Amino acid sequence: MMKIKCLIVDDEELAIDVIAEYVKRIDYLELVGSSNNAVDAMALLNQHKVDLLFLDIQMPGLTGLQMLRNLSDRPEVILTTAYSEYALEGYELQALDYLIKPISFERFIKAINRFFKIRQSQIQLPEAETNKSTSDAFIFVKSEKMMVKVVLSEICYIESLRNYVSIFLKDGKVIKTMNTITNIEEKLPETQFLRVHRSFVIAIDKIDSYTSGSFKINKQIIPLGRLYKDNVRAKLEHLSIE
Protein backbone atom coordinates (compact mmCIF):
# COMPACT_ATOMS: atom_id res chain seq x y z
CA MET A 1 0.00 0.00 0.00
CA MET A 2 1.32 3.42 -0.95
CA LYS A 3 2.23 5.63 2.00
CA ILE A 4 0.28 8.87 2.30
CA LYS A 5 2.86 11.62 2.81
CA CYS A 6 1.83 14.27 5.36
CA LEU A 7 3.10 17.74 6.29
CA ILE A 8 2.14 19.60 9.49
CA VAL A 9 2.16 23.42 9.64
CA ASP A 10 1.44 24.98 13.03
CA ASP A 11 3.08 27.68 15.15
CA GLU A 12 2.36 25.68 18.33
CA GLU A 13 4.91 22.97 19.05
CA LEU A 14 2.41 21.02 21.15
CA ALA A 15 -0.09 20.95 18.30
CA ILE A 16 2.60 19.62 15.94
CA ASP A 17 3.51 16.93 18.48
CA VAL A 18 -0.12 15.81 18.88
CA ILE A 19 -0.77 15.48 15.15
CA ALA A 20 2.63 13.84 14.58
CA GLU A 21 1.78 11.23 17.22
CA TYR A 22 -1.58 10.55 15.55
CA VAL A 23 0.13 10.15 12.17
CA LYS A 24 2.54 7.60 13.68
CA ARG A 25 -0.38 5.50 14.94
CA ILE A 26 -1.64 4.91 11.40
CA ASP A 27 0.68 2.70 9.45
CA TYR A 28 -0.21 3.97 5.99
CA LEU A 29 0.52 7.61 6.88
CA GLU A 30 4.06 9.01 6.71
CA LEU A 31 5.18 12.35 8.15
CA VAL A 32 7.63 14.02 5.76
CA GLY A 33 8.09 17.19 7.78
CA SER A 34 6.66 19.97 9.93
CA SER A 35 6.96 23.74 10.07
CA ASN A 36 5.96 26.48 12.50
CA ASN A 37 5.29 29.06 9.78
CA ALA A 38 3.64 29.22 6.37
CA VAL A 39 6.64 30.61 4.47
CA ASP A 40 8.92 27.70 5.39
CA ALA A 41 6.03 25.29 4.76
CA MET A 42 5.69 26.51 1.17
CA ALA A 43 9.39 25.79 0.66
CA LEU A 44 8.90 22.28 2.08
CA LEU A 45 6.04 21.68 -0.34
CA ASN A 46 8.44 22.44 -3.19
CA GLN A 47 11.02 19.99 -1.79
CA HIS A 48 8.79 17.05 -0.92
CA LYS A 49 5.86 15.23 -2.44
CA VAL A 50 2.99 15.84 -0.02
CA ASP A 51 -0.43 14.20 -0.26
CA LEU A 52 -2.03 15.62 2.88
CA LEU A 53 -1.39 18.94 4.62
CA PHE A 54 -2.43 19.64 8.22
CA LEU A 55 -2.60 23.44 8.27
CA ASP A 56 -3.12 25.77 11.22
CA ILE A 57 -5.07 28.93 10.43
CA GLN A 58 -3.85 31.46 13.00
CA MET A 59 -0.09 31.91 12.50
CA PRO A 60 2.08 35.04 12.65
CA GLY A 61 3.05 36.61 9.35
CA LEU A 62 1.27 34.56 6.71
CA THR A 63 -1.89 32.85 7.98
CA GLY A 64 -2.93 29.38 6.94
CA LEU A 65 -5.79 30.70 4.82
CA GLN A 66 -3.47 33.17 3.07
CA MET A 67 -1.06 30.34 2.38
CA LEU A 68 -3.88 28.22 1.01
CA ARG A 69 -4.91 30.97 -1.42
CA ASN A 70 -1.36 31.16 -2.75
CA LEU A 71 -0.89 27.44 -3.41
CA SER A 72 -1.37 26.54 -7.05
CA ASP A 73 -0.55 22.82 -7.00
CA ARG A 74 -1.66 21.94 -3.52
CA PRO A 75 -2.26 18.68 -1.67
CA GLU A 76 -5.48 17.84 0.16
CA VAL A 77 -5.75 20.14 3.18
CA ILE A 78 -7.13 19.54 6.67
CA LEU A 79 -7.37 22.80 8.57
CA THR A 80 -6.59 22.85 12.30
CA THR A 81 -7.52 25.71 14.60
CA ALA A 82 -8.88 26.68 17.99
CA TYR A 83 -11.42 29.01 16.35
CA SER A 84 -14.58 27.68 14.73
CA GLU A 85 -15.48 30.98 13.03
CA TYR A 86 -13.07 30.28 10.17
CA ALA A 87 -14.88 27.10 9.12
CA LEU A 88 -16.96 28.66 6.31
CA GLU A 89 -13.95 30.37 4.72
CA GLY A 90 -11.98 27.15 5.00
CA TYR A 91 -14.64 25.18 3.14
CA GLU A 92 -14.90 27.92 0.51
CA LEU A 93 -11.20 27.30 -0.12
CA GLN A 94 -12.10 23.60 -0.56
CA ALA A 95 -10.38 22.34 2.57
CA LEU A 96 -11.05 18.65 3.06
CA ASP A 97 -11.92 18.97 6.76
CA TYR A 98 -11.78 21.38 9.68
CA LEU A 99 -10.46 20.16 13.04
CA ILE A 100 -11.05 22.18 16.20
CA LYS A 101 -8.31 22.03 18.86
CA PRO A 102 -7.81 20.15 21.07
CA ILE A 103 -8.08 17.43 18.44
CA SER A 104 -9.10 13.95 19.60
CA PHE A 105 -7.76 10.85 17.89
CA GLU A 106 -11.32 9.78 17.07
CA ARG A 107 -11.98 13.05 15.23
CA PHE A 108 -8.59 12.79 13.52
CA ILE A 109 -9.52 9.33 12.20
CA LYS A 110 -12.78 10.70 10.75
CA ALA A 111 -10.80 13.31 8.84
CA ILE A 112 -8.38 10.67 7.54
CA ASN A 113 -11.27 8.46 6.42
CA ARG A 114 -12.69 11.42 4.52
CA PHE A 115 -9.34 11.78 2.77
CA PHE A 116 -9.35 8.11 1.80
CA LYS A 117 -12.88 8.37 0.47
CA ILE A 118 -11.69 11.04 -1.94
CA ARG A 119 -8.39 9.33 -2.71
CA GLN A 120 -9.50 5.72 -2.85
CA SER A 121 -6.93 5.07 -5.52
CA GLN A 122 -4.28 5.51 -2.84
CA ILE A 123 -5.61 2.57 -0.84
CA GLN A 124 -7.14 0.56 -3.64
CA LEU A 125 -7.75 -3.03 -2.71
CA PRO A 126 -6.97 -5.64 -5.34
CA GLU A 127 -10.02 -6.83 -7.23
CA ALA A 128 -11.47 -10.15 -6.15
CA GLU A 129 -9.55 -12.85 -7.99
CA THR A 130 -11.75 -13.76 -10.96
CA ASN A 131 -9.61 -16.52 -12.42
CA LYS A 132 -10.61 -18.73 -9.53
CA SER A 133 -13.87 -20.51 -8.96
CA THR A 134 -16.42 -18.61 -6.86
CA SER A 135 -15.52 -20.64 -3.77
CA ASP A 136 -11.82 -19.75 -4.13
CA ALA A 137 -12.12 -16.03 -4.97
CA PHE A 138 -10.33 -13.74 -2.52
CA ILE A 139 -9.11 -10.23 -1.75
CA PHE A 140 -6.30 -8.92 0.43
CA VAL A 141 -6.89 -6.43 3.24
CA LYS A 142 -4.38 -4.79 5.54
CA SER A 143 -4.65 -5.92 9.16
CA GLU A 144 -2.04 -5.37 11.88
CA LYS A 145 0.61 -4.23 9.38
CA MET A 146 0.12 -7.29 7.16
CA MET A 147 -1.82 -7.89 3.95
CA VAL A 148 -4.21 -10.70 4.91
CA LYS A 149 -5.91 -12.98 2.39
CA VAL A 150 -9.68 -13.13 2.84
CA VAL A 151 -11.55 -15.86 0.94
CA LEU A 152 -14.88 -14.40 -0.11
CA SER A 153 -16.86 -17.58 0.55
CA GLU A 154 -15.70 -17.42 4.20
CA ILE A 155 -17.21 -13.97 4.82
CA CYS A 156 -20.49 -13.82 6.75
CA TYR A 157 -20.80 -10.05 7.07
CA ILE A 158 -18.76 -6.86 7.28
CA GLU A 159 -19.33 -4.14 9.86
CA SER A 160 -18.06 -0.56 9.85
CA LEU A 161 -17.17 0.74 13.31
CA ARG A 162 -15.81 4.11 14.40
CA ASN A 163 -12.20 3.81 13.32
CA TYR A 164 -12.04 0.54 11.42
CA VAL A 165 -13.93 -2.20 9.58
CA SER A 166 -14.46 -5.73 10.94
CA ILE A 167 -14.84 -8.72 8.60
CA PHE A 168 -16.64 -11.61 10.29
CA LEU A 169 -15.81 -15.07 8.93
CA LYS A 170 -17.88 -18.25 9.24
CA ASP A 171 -15.27 -19.93 11.49
CA GLY A 172 -15.75 -17.14 14.05
CA LYS A 173 -12.58 -15.29 13.14
CA VAL A 174 -12.75 -11.50 12.89
CA ILE A 175 -10.35 -9.51 10.70
CA LYS A 176 -10.03 -5.80 11.52
CA THR A 177 -8.75 -3.33 8.97
CA MET A 178 -8.26 0.45 8.87
CA ASN A 179 -10.28 0.94 5.71
CA THR A 180 -13.75 2.06 4.66
CA ILE A 181 -16.67 -0.29 4.19
CA THR A 182 -17.46 1.40 0.86
CA ASN A 183 -13.95 0.74 -0.44
CA ILE A 184 -14.21 -2.95 0.50
CA GLU A 185 -17.76 -3.26 -0.85
CA GLU A 186 -16.62 -2.05 -4.27
CA LYS A 187 -14.27 -5.05 -4.51
CA LEU A 188 -16.96 -7.62 -3.73
CA PRO A 189 -19.16 -9.35 -6.34
CA GLU A 190 -22.67 -7.87 -6.35
CA THR A 191 -24.13 -11.32 -6.89
CA GLN A 192 -22.70 -12.55 -3.58
CA PHE A 193 -22.80 -9.52 -1.27
CA LEU A 194 -25.41 -6.97 -0.33
CA ARG A 195 -25.15 -3.56 1.36
CA VAL A 196 -28.05 -3.49 3.82
CA HIS A 197 -27.06 -0.58 6.06
CA ARG A 198 -24.48 2.20 6.03
CA SER A 199 -22.53 0.09 8.55
CA PHE A 200 -23.17 -3.43 7.19
CA VAL A 201 -22.49 -5.54 4.10
CA ILE A 202 -23.72 -9.14 4.24
CA ALA A 203 -23.02 -12.33 2.29
CA ILE A 204 -26.32 -13.36 0.68
CA ASP A 205 -25.70 -17.09 1.07
CA LYS A 206 -25.04 -16.69 4.82
CA ILE A 207 -28.49 -15.24 5.58
CA ASP A 208 -30.34 -17.56 7.98
CA SER A 209 -33.56 -15.53 7.98
CA TYR A 210 -34.80 -12.00 7.48
CA THR A 211 -37.74 -9.70 8.20
CA SER A 212 -38.77 -6.33 6.81
CA GLY A 213 -36.27 -4.66 9.14
CA SER A 214 -33.39 -7.03 9.85
CA PHE A 215 -31.33 -10.09 8.92
CA LYS A 216 -30.10 -12.97 11.05
CA ILE A 217 -26.66 -14.42 10.32
CA ASN A 218 -24.96 -16.80 12.76
CA LYS A 219 -27.24 -15.63 15.61
CA GLN A 220 -26.28 -12.02 14.87
CA ILE A 221 -29.11 -9.58 14.15
CA ILE A 222 -28.16 -7.08 11.44
CA PRO A 223 -30.40 -4.06 10.81
CA LEU A 224 -31.78 -3.16 7.39
CA GLY A 225 -31.33 0.56 6.81
CA ARG A 226 -34.28 2.53 5.49
CA LEU A 227 -32.30 3.92 2.54
CA TYR A 228 -31.30 0.40 1.44
CA LYS A 229 -34.70 -1.30 1.60
CA ASP A 230 -35.72 -0.88 -2.03
CA ASN A 231 -32.43 -2.18 -3.39
CA VAL A 232 -32.39 -5.11 -0.96
CA ARG A 233 -35.98 -6.04 -1.84
CA ALA A 234 -35.14 -6.02 -5.54
CA LYS A 235 -32.01 -8.13 -5.06
CA LEU A 236 -33.73 -10.76 -2.89
CA GLU A 237 -37.06 -10.89 -4.71
CA HIS A 238 -36.04 -13.69 -7.06
CA LEU A 239 -34.79 -15.77 -4.11
CA SER A 240 -37.98 -15.47 -2.04
CA ILE A 241 -41.12 -17.60 -2.09
CA GLU A 242 -44.07 -16.40 0.01
Rank of each mutant, 00 (worst) to 15 (best):
S160I: 01
G61K: 09
I139P: 00
P102V: 09
K219Q: 11
M59N: 00
Q124R: 11
L62I: 15
F115C: 01
I109P: 07
K101D: 12
L7E: 05
D40P: 06
M146I: 11
I103N: 07
I184S: 02
T182C: 04
L93R: 12
V165T: 13
L227R: 13
L7G: 09
I103H: 08
E76Q: 12
I103W: 13
E237T: 08
L29A: 07
K145Q: 13
D171I: 12
I155Q: 01
T130E: 10
V165Q: 04
D73S: 13
E85Q: 13
Y86K: 02
Y28V: 03
Y86H: 15
I155L: 02
V32L: 13
E12L: 10
S214Q: 14
R107M: 04
P75Y: 06
R162P: 07
D56K: 01
I202N: 00
A87S: 05
L79W: 08
D208R: 06
F115E: 01
V201D: 00
I123P: 00
I202M: 00
I78V: 09
P60W: 03
D73P: 02
N163L: 04
D11V: 02
I100D: 08
S212I: 03
N131I: 04
S199P: 03
I158D: 01
N183I: 14
E106V: 15
P75T: 03
L45D: 08
V196G: 01
E13F: 08
V150E: 03
R162N: 15
